[in-house]
Design a protein around this nucleic acid. Structure first.
Lengths: 326, 326
DNA sequence: GTCCGCCTGGAAATCGATTTCCCCCGAGTC
DNA sequence: GACTCGGGGGAAATCGATTTCCAGGCGGAC
């Protein structure tokens, strides 16, 4: 019940608190016999140093914050695994927070990260322009953004080449004979949505097709939004011969809309999707998927972050991985 | 960069640190003028108290741990929302951790929660028998389990009536004319899996059907396991006329297996599923779904936990919500 | 044999906040 | 006018760990 402190251990081992600390941290200058006595006392009492008290002196924590915009999204959850594995290998723990794309929640968790003096933060910002990390910057807490960028802040970043991947997907669809490609875009606040839309337009241009405004509908990167957007596109006359959905959750919604309209893919309409959702959508072979190295993104983000944490100084680094067509 | 401390604020406002603390915490006995000066200084310096230093004196944190077994599972993510909303309403923040059903990871996060002196922990244990919360108990950190139970520990718990819900689902399937009902069970370590299997057997008995061993296959509560288990069942001769899948992710896998075997639901086989996965599976109307009040579970778990946190003593409470057939 | 130096380990300062204790000053009462 | 009572606010102790500083003891060298 009551906290076991370093003094209790010291008392039991018959040494001073200083010696206990020396044994537990940077041990060499302690006689073997005392060392054993201390370790025995630690074991017997089940002593665990209070991380708060330790922080007060050392200013060092082993906690990383991972603030992501939607934990329902398998894209992020796979990234979380990559981050966790890399962090625990280096002796750090990862605390997750979910913002639901809500700026207020996001700010609250940034405050928590600052108040807890986390060693570093990985962030997929809900907005490129309105997300503020100044609280962290003030405290010298390093930040790495994943997936999405921040407009202003000069921070490290790990992402994929969204423009090129989207463009390639469009060209693939054109190769398959599609000419009227509907595009379900994401929220304007989010850089990946902007990039993917740009890629879509580049792809059309490269294929010599005209960009038609009515073929682009904006969604919210969520299931319901994808469903509504797909329904809008499917109502067009003539109907698009392909749908390019710019994120995985919206693809689930779009699949539902297709079912509601009695359309089957790939027979009635061709589908291209950002992110690998084979497990949910089925019939993957017939579909253009843009697969992102999500696990790898999490891993690299942590590695980059930990270099900053350990004090390395280098200009903001942008790691751009390749999203590949499958 | 450098930490702004209470002394900086005190200096700027021309008062003592004690007064600053009084203003920020339990204010009444401070003269209005000083109060304003302090608040102004706080604003101008952007002062935020260090939660570590505060904890050292007060022994109180406003951080709740939420340790769940699989963040890919929408069941849990919806629960997380309920927990977050309830917590933030009470001025607490929620830190998430993902164990991936891995006892080692789980233990590590329990250690983190103990080391960080979190106010309380909500846990969906990876194992009923091998998960140990003694580290938390020693420190007096209250624990509430959600979804699953712990065998030994006498802790509060929020869950659903798994036995009855599974039984009802079986009876519904029998009503629809099914006689050979395959069951995809979950891991033996997990209490919900045990309960649901028991419910399946009760349902068969109540319907006067024999329990056949070969109709029950064990999965791992994950997509791939569901797919493999469903494939096993579909190979049986004669083939089952219904599949009852005991969790949502396995249902996704089972749906894939059905497609691979060229079977359609509900035409070729009847499906019943634990958890509401309409968005992913489609064709919900034709399917028996057991919907769990996930958001509510998260909310209630936090409320129960916070009562413990504030020191209320009462015998371990079991909140059992109803999972309903839709 | 004495002195110097090094190594070991204890005492105490420190981190940043809260809280107790106490002093001082003003108002009210006899 | 003096004494008491009470409220406001400062000084200092405290939380639990780390770390600096220093004392004591031992060994080696001259």
């Amino acid at each position: 019940m009551a906290q076991i402190t370093i003094k209790d251990v010291a008392g039991r081992a018959g040494v001073s608190p200083a010696t206990v600390s020396r044994v537990l941290n940077h041990g060499p200058t302690v006689a073997e016999e005392l060392r054993e006595r201390v370790l025995a006392a630690v074991r017997e009492l089940g002593y665990r140093p209070s991380s708060q008290a330790r922080f007060l002196r050392t200013r060092a924590t082993t906690l990383l914050g991972l603030i992501i915009s939607d934990i329902t999204n398998p894209f992020f959850t796979s990234m979380v695994r990559g981050a966790e594995d890399a962090a625990s290998k280096a002796g750090y723990s990862v605390m997750l927070a979910n913002t639901d794309e809500d700026l207020e929640k996001e700010q609250r968790y940034i405050e928590v990260a600052a108040a807890e003096n986390m060693a570093g933060v990985i962030l997929s910002p809900a907005s490129a322009t309105r997300t503020s990390i100044s609280l962290l910057a003030e405290r010298g807490i390093p930040v790495v953004t994943v997936d999405r960028r921040l407009q202003t802040a000069k921070v490290d970043r790990v992402g994929v080449n969204n423009v090129k991947a989207a463009q390639d997907a469009v060209l693939r669809l054109v190769d398959q004979g599609c000419r009227r490609i509907g595009f379900i875009a994401g929220p304007t606040e989010v850089t990946t949505a902007v990039d993917r839309l740009a890629g879509y337009r580049h792809g059309l241009r490269a294929a010599g097709l005209a960009y038609r405004r009515e073929l682009v509908v904006r969604g919210d990167y969520r299931i319901e939004g994808g469903r509504a957007a797909a329904a809008d596109l499917l109502r067009l006359k003539p109907r698009p011969d392909a749908l390019f959905v710019s994120n995985n959750l919206m693809a689930l919604g779009a699949a539902t809309a297709l079912r509601e309209y009695g359309l089957r893919y790939p027979e009635d309409i061709t589908l291209a999707v950002f992110d690998d959702m084979r497990w949910a959508l089925g019939l993957s072979d017939a579909m253009t998927l843009i697969s992102q190295p999500t696990y790898e993104m999490g891993r690299l983000a942590v590695e980059l972050l930990l270099r900053r944490v350990s004090g390395e100084g280098f200009p903001p680094r942008h790691v751009v991985l390749s999203a590949v067509l499958v």
